[in-house]
Design a protein around this nucleic acid. Structure first.
Length: 289
DNA sequence: CACGGTGCCTGAGAGC
DNA sequence: TGCTCTCAGGCACCGT
């Protein structure tokens, strides 16, 4: 389950190992990952063949590779997606969905393949017409809190004008991107705020602190993940060591809160779970109607 | 428009 | 052993 730090590691790997390559062939082995491409699988392949990758960029959990004609290959890893750079002809992965043959021309690089591997196929790829700068498909996605241009004050203002629960707001890609279920729970635990608290009932200070905690959790994970890729292999590993050592709330149902010892509670939330300390993060008294 | 609920997917693991 | 059920969750989508 790649969160933003893992996606950034993938971006760095793509920047190092794919930029400058020309795509000489595209093979779509499963059509679901290209379902959002209006051209369909064959059009997708045709739009990429012959193009040269000029960059590797990211917004939130979306990645895109600007191409030499102004289009872009836009991708999302979803729950289980991986971007692998493999030597041409390497054994095929079990859940390989799309493969791209890469040519590095006269720069000494051996033939390689970019491979999109995705077990659950929540992720996907598409060619964004004219999307090299910022694909229109993700124009609604906000910046992430590690982005130097993220506007803290604007985020605080917007949260405080919303009546939805603050956890839902943390997961709202239009307000802030890159915060997944795990980091949302961790940031809320650190800030001692319950996720059901309406945004409009939080103080400016509380929202600012919550944002700071989200940023810290993500930055710490990024430092850990940033060391984990080698020369020709770009991987996503949701089981990074960071998760094992540093989680205070997520996945810790019935285990004592690291601050006060009260058992961590788990509640259903958006077809998944929320974990929180019932003492440090009291449930709001006034339920929303 | 904001809100809150649901479906998409596969495989691991639990329970019987 | 082998079946069925639950869970994982980012995001689009939809009804209100």
């Amino acid at each position: 389950m790649p969160e933003l730090p893992e996606v950034e590691v993938v971006r760095l790997g793509l920047e190092r190992h794919v930029v400058g390559a020309t795509i000489t062939a595209v093979e779509v082995l499963h059509e679901r990952p290209v379902r959002r491409d209006p051209r369909g699988p064959s059009g997708f392949a045709a739009a990429l063949t012959g193009r040269t990758v000029t960059g590797a960029r990211r917004r939130g959990k979306y990645l895109w590779l600007p191409l030499d004609n102004g289009d872009a290959l836009l991708g999302h890893l979803g729950m289980s997606g991986q971007m692998l750079v493999q030597p041409a002809g390497a054994p095929v992965e079990r859940h390989l969905r799309v493969r791209f043959a890469l040519d590095f021309g006269g720069r000494g690089g051996r033939p390689a393949e970019l491979r999109f591997v995705d077990q659950r196929m929540f992720g996907g790829l598409l060619v964004s017409a004219g999307g090299a700068g910022l694909p229109s498909e993700i124009a609604h996605i906000a910046r992430d809190p590690l982005d130097p241009e993220f506007d803290d004050d604007l985020f605080v203002q917007r949260v405080r004008r919303r009546s939805a629960g603050v956890k839902r707001l943390l997961l709202d890609q239009g307000l802030i991107s890159g915060v997944g279920n795990i980091y949302a729970d961790e940031a809320l635990w650190r800030a001692r705020v319950h996720g059901d608290r309406p945004g409009e009932r939080l103080t400016r200070k509380q929202v600012t602190e919550l944002l700071g905690h989200a940023r810290e959790v993500m930055a710490a994970a990024l430092v850990q993940g940033g060391t984990s890729f080698d020369a020709l292999y770009v991987n996503v590993n949701g089981e990074s060591g960071y998760f094992d050592r540093s989680l205070h709330a997520y996945g810790r149902e019935d285990q004592p809160c690291d601050r006060c010892g009260t058992p961590i509670r788990r509640i259903a939330f958006m077809n998944r779970s929320s974990y929180f300390c019932p003492r440090c993060q009291p449930v709001p008294r006034v339920r929303r109607v």
